[in-house]
Amino acid sequence: MTDTPPDIERLIQEVLAEAGYDADAADVARRVRKLNHGLPAEDEFAAICAWLGRTRLLHKLDQHQIPARSRFEFQVPDILAVFEAGGPFLIEVKRCNDRTLSLKSDYYARLLSYADKMGLPLLIAWKHHSLWTLVDVRHFALAKKNFNLAHGEAMRQNLLGILAGDVAFKLAQGSGLHLDIAKEELIETRPTEDGYEETWQMRVTGVHFTIKDGELRTDLHPETTQLFATWDLESSETHSPTRIRQSFTVGAEGIEFAHRALVALLAWEKPVDEPTNWRTQLRAPEITRSIAHFDAALQRGMTEGVVHLILRQNPVTIPDFIKEES
């Protein structure tokens, strides 16, 4: 990832001048930064929906409106989507880390005006830190001036599972990855406050996997082993005079969501500290190289003893437009 040039505004101004536009470079730079704040979230949501496997169609809506006065009455949402469970739906994508997502009253009214005129349900996709929810806009309630939705209520009314195929899952305690590392040559010994520290030339001599309760398995499906990349594994080591066994295993606590697992898998596939370019992922033949169909991988992992639990969430209130379409 390249750093932003310190003279970015001057460069933008030069491009504008060559193209024949008269605009303030600082204002253009500000607008680009604002646009870049929203577009990655839209791309991430689109990639998640494509990867989860129950999306038939998803495309972004052109938000350049004419005539200009239409902007006072209508707000075009970000995405049009069709899922196996129903559609088409309009989706507005938001990223907010506050416990409450707040929409200004006039903005809320313009979104609803567009949706009502098109005769389509309007959903809000909300990224809260790393957690996504998808909620019917009519769950927002008027506060003093704005329409608000608490994150807890968004979780209760989340449609991401029944529409896109998101699930929660837990890997089996004791399952994990184990490396056998041979000590081949002592390179250096250094004294420390607590004793001494050794530097060895070492070589990995074996890679092993365990399933629930630490049972050794040698025939796990490759996609089952990739599930460990989605989990925050506990690390431990056992030492002998000639070797080290380094273990990364699933503990007793924790639960994960499929849409967050995608982020972890993509992080595992690329160089360390390189951010995910969601636009690039959308253009790739496959969203991820490691697991093509995550739900099928979870089902297989449960059969093989690596997955302990799969939870499929239904919202507290299933909207009528989904009942009618499904």
Rank of each mutant, 00 (worst) to 15 (best):
L220F: 05
R138C: 09
E73R: 15
A154W: 04
D116S: 14
R283H: 11
E44Q: 15
G38N: 00
A85P: 01
H308R: 14
D24G: 08
T2P: 13
R71A: 13
Y114N: 03
T192S: 06
K104T: 11
I12P: 01
H129L: 13
L39P: 02
K170M: 13
D24C: 08
Q246Y: 13
F257K: 13
E193H: 14
I66S: 14
Q313T: 13
V137K: 01
N277I: 05
L80H: 07
D136N: 11
R95I: 08
E269V: 09
I322G: 02
T303S: 12
P6G: 05
L11M: 13
L103S: 03
V137E: 02
Q157R: 02
V137C: 07
W231M: 06
A29M: 13
T225Y: 06
E188W: 08
H139C: 07
R203A: 13
L122A: 06
W51G: 01
Q313N: 13
F228E: 00
K270G: 14
P5Q: 00
A296D: 12
H37C: 12
A47P: 02
L227C: 01
E286D: 14
I255Q: 15
A68E: 14
V28W: 05
P40F: 08
A143M: 12
G87W: 03
G119T: 06
K117T: 15
R56P: 08
M155W: 09
V207I: 09
P285D: 01
K183L: 07
E274T: 12
F209L: 05
Y196A: 15
H221A: 08
K117S: 14
P315T: 01
L311M: 11
L282G: 11
E14I: 10
T210G: 06
V82M: 09
Q65W: 09
Q173I: 07
L220W: 02
P121Q: 01
E234P: 05
L233K: 00
V272S: 11
Q63Y: 07
V15Y: 09
T55P: 07
G301H: 00
D232G: 10
K212I: 09
R243Q: 12
S235P: 11
H293T: 10
M202I: 15
V15G: 11
L58N: 03
T224Y: 00
A267E: 15
V250M: 06
A115W: 03
T225E: 09
S235W: 10
I124K: 05
H37F: 15
R289M: 12
L142K: 15
L163E: 07
D320C: 02
A143G: 14
W231K: 06
A252C: 08
T317Y: 07
A125F: 02
P315Y: 01
P67I: 05
T242N: 12
H239Y: 12
V137G: 02
D106M: 11
W126S: 01
I79S: 04
T288M: 03
P88D: 08
L262M: 10
A284E: 09
N146M: 12
I322P: 01
V93D: 00
A252K: 14
R138N: 12
Q13N: 15
Q13A: 15
L149E: 04
K323Q: 13
N97C: 10
L123I: 04
F248C: 08
F294E: 02
Q299I: 13
D43G: 07
R243D: 11
L134D: 05
A296P: 05
E253W: 08
E256R: 15
L227N: 00
G206C: 09
